[in-house]
């Protein structure tokens, strides 16, 4: 057919055929792959080579690889209740490549930290990635927050966790993380360390409102620390824990029971720990 109309018709039919072929082969292709094939993740070259071969498009490549990982984990979540063991390697490899391509790209740190800590228990790799992120973006306080949480919750390294939380407060300008650090340290029996951290924060805080909040927390913890020392003296003297704070007063170890600036009352729990009914927050 040499007419224009005839040529257009041939083109139209060929385009329809093209669409038809794609449609026909779409579903069987997925079925033929099999589950094992579909669960395999892409292979990466050496991170340095990935960066070289990205030329000026490393950011886009980082985004694309991260998106690929999210899609992969999303597909696995349809088949498995929890991320399967074989998915850990793709997460780590993708994180190594993407942080090499664009170490400023936030999403990969968030994803890797979330999966590696909660699902795979590999807190050290997660922390290593977060430390790398901080090398390039030291102003990103959220990494300090994640590191603080990881140390506190997973590694039980309370002092290091508190150090990171304090740093999160300093960098973000939000004192609540330092408050949290002191509260967590107190809860884990490290009241003295919590007091030290709060004193440091008060010294370095210029905002009067925040300073007042920190000073209130400090006063409460100092009261608790005084009572904790008194409980220890009671135990050494009488070989048993006091039933209540009045016994400390009656034994002449303390002159009076300190006041909780949050409006609560200090007491001794069954294990001999000093607690307060306010839980170190203002009562209504």
């Amino acid at each position: 057919m040499k007419s224009k109309g005839g040529r257009l018709l041939i083109v139209f039919i060929l385009v329809l055929l093209m669409i038809g072929v794609n449609y026909f082969f779409d579903k069987p292709q997925v079925r033929l792959k099999g589950r094992e094939e579909a669960e395999r993740f892409r292979l990466y070259a050496n991170p340095s080579f990935e960066k070289w071969s990205g030329f000026e498009f490393t950011f886009l490549k980082a985004f694309y690889y991260t998106l690929g990982l999210r899609v992969y984990m999303g597909k696995l979540s349809e088949e498995y209740l929890a991320p399967p063991p074989f998915a850990k390697d793709p997460i780590v490899r993708t994180a190594e490549v993407v942080t090499r391509l664009c170490p400023y790209y936030y999403d990969i740190y968030y994803i890797a930290n979330g999966y590696l800590t909660w699902d795979y228990g590999d807190v050290e790799t997660a922390n290593r990635l977060l430390e790398k992120g901080l090398e390039y973006t030291p102003e990103r306080w959220i990494y300090y927050l994640y590191l603080g949480f990881n140390h506190f919750y997973f590694l039980k390294d309370y002092e290091k966790g508190a150090m990171y939380l304090v740093k999160a407060s300093e960098v973000s300008g939000k004192p609540q993380y330092a408050h949290l650090a002191s509260k967590l340290l107190y809860a884990s029996g490290r009241t003295e360390v919590a007091i030290g951290i709060l004193k440091g924060m008060i010294e370095n805080t210029r905002d009067e409102g925040w300073k007042r909040g920190l000073e209130t927390r400090l006063k409460a913890l100092e009261g608790i620390y005084e009572l904790e020392k008194a409980v220890e003296v009671f135990r050494e003297r009488f070989g048993t824990l006091p039933q209540n704070l009045e016994e400390l007063k009656n034994a002449g170890i303390i002159k009076g029971i300190p006041e909780d600036p949050y409006g609560g009352e200090f007491y001794i729990d069954e294990e001999g720990n000093v607690r307060t009914t306010s839980n170190l927050t203002y009562m209504d």
Binding site: L60, F63, R70, Y110
Partner: peptide, 11 residues
Amino acid sequence: MFEVPRVLAGF
């Protein structure tokens, strides 16, 4: 997921 302006700028 995060930092939308940066991703769109990058693209």
